[in-house]
Amino acid sequence: MDGAALKEWRKAERERLLDLRRVLSAEERAARDAALIANLENVLGDVRGKVVSLYWPIKKEPDLKPVMQRVTDLGGICALPIVEKYGQPLVFKSWAKGEPLERGVWNIPVPAKGEVVTPDIAFAPVVGFDRNCYRLGYGGGFFDRTLASLSPMPFVIGVGYAQAEIPTIHPQPFDIPMSVIVTETEVIK
């Protein structure tokens, strides 16, 4: 598949997968989120003293806010990603429940204060994914660009619903696979 065809395929596939997510009822999403969070328990491990980057859910992504609290309760440091400049890697700032948030790019809540940190573990929401742990995101390249800039590379957990699995994302040289993908039904390594 040439570059132009791949770009069009990814755009259409994103829209199809987002539509599947949009039609889930709030009750169905809550049930899937609970099962997904239970599967995360088998992956997360000891977070004491580690920086764990999560995300604020948008576009009906799995809601991992309970994991944020659990990380803090277990002695980890939560961080949220921030788009500071388009075309540049994300910046991560520490955040704990009760600390102020402000609206960032696309009106996503981001820490109003917090220290700039480097994650040991990073969660990435997926629009789609394949069995090789490649992630289809929203198409901005922020997450892959960020992972390419981090040294050492954090343990990266792709998070999404099982219905987002596709045979392949047709990975390109700039696509970086996740360490694992966690859904409500399984953990893919």
Rank of each mutant, 00 (worst) to 15 (best):
M1I: 03
M1K: 08
D2A: 00
G3K: 13
G3E: 13
A4G: 00
A4W: 01
A5P: 03
W9D: 05
W9M: 05
R10Q: 15
R10E: 10
R10F: 04
K11V: 11
A12S: 10
A12N: 14
E13M: 14
R16G: 06
R16N: 07
L17M: 14
L20N: 05
R21T: 03
R21Q: 15
R22Y: 13
V23L: 15
S25T: 15
A26S: 08
A26D: 14
A26M: 09
E27H: 07
E28P: 07
A31N: 09
R32Q: 12
A35K: 10
L36Y: 14
L36M: 14
A38M: 05
A38H: 07
N39H: 14
L40R: 11
E41M: 08
G45F: 03
D46K: 10
V47Q: 02
G49Q: 01
G49C: 14
G49R: 06
S53E: 03
Y55T: 04
W56S: 14
P57R: 01
I58N: 01
D63C: 14
D63Q: 08
L64H: 09
L64V: 13
Q69T: 12
R70S: 15
G75P: 00
G75Q: 13
G76S: 04
I77Q: 09
E84S: 12
Y86E: 11
Y86R: 14
G87F: 10
G87Y: 06
G87W: 08
Q88T: 09
P89E: 05
L90D: 06
V91D: 09
F92H: 10
G98T: 05
P100W: 09
P100A: 08
L101D: 15
E102S: 08
W106P: 06
V110F: 11
V110T: 12
A112Q: 06
D120R: 01
I121V: 15
P125N: 02
V127S: 09
G128L: 06
C133G: 05
Y134C: 04
Y134K: 02
R135Y: 04
R135L: 07
L136D: 03
G137M: 05
G139C: 06
F143D: 00
F143W: 12
D144F: 04
L147R: 13
S149M: 04
S149L: 06
L150Q: 00
M153Q: 09
P154C: 02
P154L: 02
I157F: 07
G158E: 00
G158M: 01
G158I: 02
V159S: 08
A162M: 11
A162Y: 11
P167M: 02
P167V: 08
P167D: 11
T168C: 13
I169E: 13
I169R: 12
H170T: 12
D175R: 04
I176L: 10
M178T: 02
M178A: 00
T183R: 01
I188E: 01
